[in-house]
Write a protein that binds this DNA or RNA. Structure first.
Length: 427
DNA sequence: AGCCTTTGACCAGCG
DNA sequence: TCGCTGGTCAAAGGC
């Protein structure tokens, strides 16, 4: 509860506002597939890097740019912010893809939770499956499918009415910041805000259409926030088997198991008292297709759009989650100001020792087992908060090895490394 | 009736 | 060995 989370920033909890993604270890085969050492970070990392290092503008601004582009909206066949400097990394990829850095459409199963405070890519994500997915077009075909930027742009497109209102209007400084470290947090802020405001996602194969439809109609009528009863609707059915108040955690942690027979996938969900999901941690890998049975709130009754994909992370399974770790109770504004940055792309490899892998997006380093993390949460929080504001959550894509291998289903080429001041891990 | 949630108790790992 | 903590179990109740 709040008993151990002093509200005054910078506090340890302030760091918790920074979401992170810790990717699970990759199997040897996957390493081979992905090219092993030298492989570059995953999409989140890359996207984040785009904004953080190559573009001084806020993510909202970038999103606005995407919106302004005739091809940038629901239509998936366009480059995200093609004319902007943040595309440098994309250009890098172009070298490999032979041209357009884009998706034909989103990979099946790629999920961007539209639930409050959550941005999740579900477990079961793997390079191979993603590459095989219809949404991915091999470089040889001259296309790279829909880029992450595009996904973000699409998400943002539906979020424009809300994200702009909540993120930019209420927190104009956030989008205005461009040179400070906080500006690096900006890129995902709109998305996060959006997601936090969004109802449960709806899986579909025509996300673009939904994005378009929603962005054009339903979006404006969407309530800024809502409470969800289900932790997620990621296409799987979950049964809650426990709940506990974790020490140091602001919110109770719920434990879910996949209800599919023989499926051992579990997830932990932390939810604020107002129903906002603040953290989700997946464990394991679904060895079954997503259930056709949809949860009650799975529908897009609210016009919510989500991106969903099915990734197979391989032998170790994958968990990905993005959430806002809150400090104290998260208000709507807190969620709206939720920002994500590419910082802290670390090469910690502790998770490689784990039989299960976790991925999370929250404000903590997550490359350590739970037991270890207990001892380091406060420390890392303090470290992070020392150079970051409270309302600057980030997406941290952490690889499980020193070579920045990310099981995000994409192939990345590392084009640089740098030690960032205040960050113990090279970027 | 079946499934899910709740919740206290129990178990295991760690320092 | 003990206490702390996170994770899990399982009975009870609800939907």
């Amino acid at each position: 509860m709040a008993e151990n989370q002093p509200p005054s920033p910078p506090s340890p909890s302030s760091q918790s506002a920074r979401p992170r993604i810790a990717l699970p270890p990759r199997s040897s085969m996957e390493n081979l597939f992905m090219g092993g050492p030298g492989a570059s970070p995953g999409p989140m990392t890359l996207v984040s890097s785009f904004f953080a290092e190559n573009d001084p503008r806020s993510f909202s601004q970038l999103l606005a740019g995407a919106m302004d582009s005739p091809a940038g909206m629901p239509n998936v066949r366009h480059n995200f912010l093609p004319s902007q400097p943040v595309q440098q990394a994309a250009v890098e990829n172009k070298e490999d893809t032979g041209g357009d850095f884009r998706f034909q459409h989103r990979p099946a199963g790629l999920v961007v939770w539209q639930q409050p405070g959550m941005f999740t890519i579900p477990p079961g994500l793997s390079p191979a499956s993603l590459l095989d997915s219809p949404g991915f077009v091999p470089p040889a075909q001259g296309s790279f499918g829909m880029s992450h930027q595009q996904i973000l742009a699409q998400v943002s497109s539906q979020a424009q009415t809300q994200a702009q209102i909540h993120t930019q209007s209420e927190y104009p400084s956030l989008s205005a910041a461009s040179t400070s470290s906080t500006s690096q947090l900006q890129p995902f802020s709109s998305i996060m805000s959006l997601q936090q405001q969004m109802p449960p996602p709806v899986r579909d194969t025509n996300i673009m259409k939904e994005l378009s439809d929603v962005s054009q109609s339903d979006q404006k009528s969407q309530p800024p926030n809502f409470t969800v009863d289900k932790p997620t609707d990621d296409g799987y059915n979950w049964r809650k088997y426990g709940q506990k108040q974790v020490k140091g955690g602001e919110y109770p942690r719920s434990y879910y198991k996949c209800t599919h027979p023989k499926c051992q996938v579990k997830k932990k969900v932390e939810r604020s008292l107002d129903g906002q999901i603040t953290e989700i941690i997946y464990k394991g890998q679904h060895d079954h297709p997503q259930s056709s049975k949809r949860t009650k709130d799975a529908g897009n009754s609210n016009g919510t759009v989500h991106l969903q994909g099915n990734f197979d992370m391989g032998s170790e399974g994958l968990t990905r989650n993005l959430s806002k770790s809150g400090e104290g109770l998260l208000s709507n504004k807190d969620l709206e100001s939720f920002q994500v940055t590419p910082e802290h792309i670390s090469g910690s490899s502790d998770s490689e020792e784990m039989g299960e892998t976790e991925t999370r997006v929250d404000g903590r380093d997550d490359d350590e087992p739970e037991s270890k993390r207990r001892n380091t949460e406060v420390q890392t929080s303090e470290q992070a908060s020392s150079h970051r504001t409270v309302t600057e959550p980030r997406i941290i894509v952490q690889t499980t090895s020193e070579v920045d291998l990310l099981d995000d289903g994409y192939r990345w080429r590392k084009y640089g490394q740098k030690v960032v001041k205040g960050n113990p891990h090279p970027r």
